[in-house]
Design a protein around this nucleic acid. Structure first.
Lengths: 196, 196
DNA sequence: GGTGAAACGGATATGTCATCCGCTTCTTCG
DNA sequence: CGAAGAAGCGGATGACATATCCGTTTCACC
């Protein structure tokens, strides 16, 4: 048995259609159009079965659409970890994450989903959890963060901040981003180590 | 349950069916069963049309199911406002709210929904927003809360805390409640007035 | 350019949602 | 009391969304 099937080589037409579909998925996500695979097929000028073959569920498509944003976030995390100031690294990473989650609607569902339902991004999520945990640990070791907060809390807290921003009745996307940053500020203050 | 009737009183059989339906709705919410009005009808031994007549959408049923929990929360808010310590009032009210939102799954969707899509609880939401605003104002006036935080932020922040707890991978409901309280603690610390 | 495998597409089966309308039950009033 | 009609009932059924199947086409390789 072959060791790895991670990269099955796609046929030329399959690759073309895959791209078309992901492109349409990206557009739908950006426009807020609900991802219905039939509609995606029509918009991509592709048969329904082709869409279902590549992406069995809407979630699978959103997951694929989310990958570039996800990788950008990983880059941010690595940069935060490479910097000199532990607390600034944590802070900047969290601000960047909240901005990204609010700017790209495909990220939140992937973040919030349990790992097993979205196997494709599982590895990315694992790496991001690992990196954000190390960012937090470093800030805690530097005495900048309350010891009671652990790495398991970072992703949920971020999701909570983003959700709070989306609940907040705001006219435009800019207002939502502003609300998100404000809520994150509150949370960051809450994470600070207590003087008392 | 006490529900103010703005329109004519229901006929006897209609009232009986209404009760059956709401009861089933409550059970479905507690069990996490998705609210599909056809299923509700079958479980309540009632025709489909009867369900649709009383509750045009699943949200409308959830809304009605949420009312008792909502009123309990209003009671908490009034108690918090009647107490002596402004900050303790805010803190206790928020803890009670988060506990309630995590214990009763019907509350979150009603909280998060824009007002106009759920007209029935609009008045309750208005009253709760008013009370929580006054609780916050009192705490701020006492110098216990950062002046940058306004009453518009309270409900979104609470929703965010609850959402964070539900994202947090937790085995049982107790763990989720514990996570919610921890997240609320972080948030409360973030709300405290800054030393700088 | 011939061959087998992979991929395609859309007709259609399956499942869900919500309405319509003939029938039943309740209330009112003579 | 009992007739009349208003209010409510139920489930068959049409409208709509989702997902699969299979005959046809395209591609990669020889």
């Amino acid at each position: 048995m072959l060791v790895t099937m991670t990269t099955a080589p796609l046929r030329k037409d399959a690759a073309r259609n895959w791209h078309r579909i992901v492109e349409v998925g990206r557009r739908f996500v950006d426009e807020g159009t609900p991802i219905q695979l039939n509609d995606v097929a029509r918009a991509a000028s592709v048969g329904v079965a082709t869409v279902y073959r590549h992406f069995p569920t809407p979630e699978a498509l959103v997951e694929t659409v989310a990958i570039p944003g996800f990788e950008a976030l990983l880059g941010q995390a690595e940069r935060a970890l490479a910097g000199d100031d532990p607390y600034a690294g944590l802070r900047d990473f969290l601000y960047a994450s909240v901005d990204a989650l609010l700017a790209d609607a495909s990220l939140s569902p992937v973040f919030a989903a349990p790992v097993n339902v979205l196997p494709h991004t599982a590895e990315l999520k694992r790496r991001l959890a690992d990196l954000s945990g190390r960012i937090l640990d470093r800030a805690r070791a530097a005495g900048a963060v309350d010891p009671g907060v652990t790495q398991d809390h970072v992703v949920p807290l971020m999701c909570g901040v983003v959700y709070a921003a989306s609940v907040h009745p705001a006219a435009c996307a800019e207002d939502r981003a502003a609300a998100g940053r404000r809520f994150l500020t509150v949370m960051l203050e809450g994470l600070r180590v207590r003087a008392s």
